[in-house]
């Protein structure tokens, strides 16, 4: 695995994370270290808790009233579940791309400028940020002549890349992808995958996916989730070629899931 640099540098360290939705114990003692500038994939059957876990990393689960969390998640050696953590600051640093493309009902330009604007970036800089974000998300050539048209007129794949551009515009360190291709056709999926491979140079990427080939193609590390637990976590190659756990093997070979 030559492409993993800084192998020992851990960006996110999760220790004994438990999560309940009301009475439902959805995550059980999850511990994992996520490497900097790599792609870490979470795989597992529906309802195994992989998306729930992803949403812990930028505290999106705060929005769910019945959700209760115990344990620690260290990012930059600070536990993000401490009381004094600024969630706004956290989410600025940990961007998220959702399952369904969710551009705001405004122009392409305004979609990307939204983040910098709310964070008080100087107006003069915004043009440059928008342009750069569109370049980084490989969308510039397709939309440069119609930045003022509605983002909703773009195709699904373009919308998703716009959402990635929007996330890049706030200059995060980490980007979380929650099944970003599940609503897209194969060609769009391919483009997003190439983009993710490209982005990992500069960002730490965590991706939840239903698609095991996708995990195998783009990730450096893979964690297999089942019933709210991490069954196995390791280098992607090892997980797919030589799984240590029976459950992982069964899932990967398509015996269930």
């Amino acid at each position: 695995m030559e492409n993993i640099k800084n192998e020992n540098e851990v960006e996110i360290q999760v220790k004994d994370l438990d999560l309940w939705y009301g009475e439902n114990h959805a995550l059980k003692e999850v511990s994992i270290g996520i490497s900097k500038n790599g792609v870490t994939a979470f795989i597992g059957p529906s309802g195994c808790g992989k998306s729930t876990f992803l949403r812990c990393l930028n505290r999106m689960n705060d929005l769910i009233k019945s959700c209760r969390i115990e344990g620690q998640i260290f990012e930059r050696s600070k536990n993000i579940y401490e009381n004094d953590v600024d969630v706004v600051e956290l989410r600025k640093r940990v961007g998220m791309v959702f399952q369904k493309p969710n551009p705001f009902p405004m122009s392409i330009y305004d979609n990307i400028a939204y983040g910098p604007r709310i964070h008080g970036v100087d107006k003069k800089e915004i043009d440059g940020i928008v342009k750069q974000a569109l370049h980084s998300s490989a969308l510039w050539d397709e939309v440069s002549d119609r930045l003022d048209s509605s983002a909703l007129d773009l195709s699904g794949g373009q919308q998703q890349r716009l959402c990635i551009a929007r996330t890049l515009a706030v200059k995060p360190d980490i980007i979380l992808f929650d099944e970003p291709c599940s609503a897209l056709d194969p060609i769009s999926t391919n483009k997003i995958e190439e983009l993710i491979m490209d982005l990992k140079k500069d960002y730490t990427i965590v991706i939840v996916t239903h698609n095991m080939q996708q995990a195998a193609r783009i990730s450096d590390y893979t964690a297999f989730f089942l019933n709210g637990e991490i069954i196995e976590f390791g280098e992607t190659k090892q997980i797919f070629e030589n799984p240590q756990e029976k459950g992982t093997e069964d899932y990967i070979t398509g015996r269930f899931g």
Partner: peptide, 10 residues
């Protein structure tokens, strides 16, 4: 998900 998109940007 539109609302979440905004919150996720901080």
């Amino acid at each position: 998900y539109i609302k979440e998109g905004s919150l996720a940007l901080g």
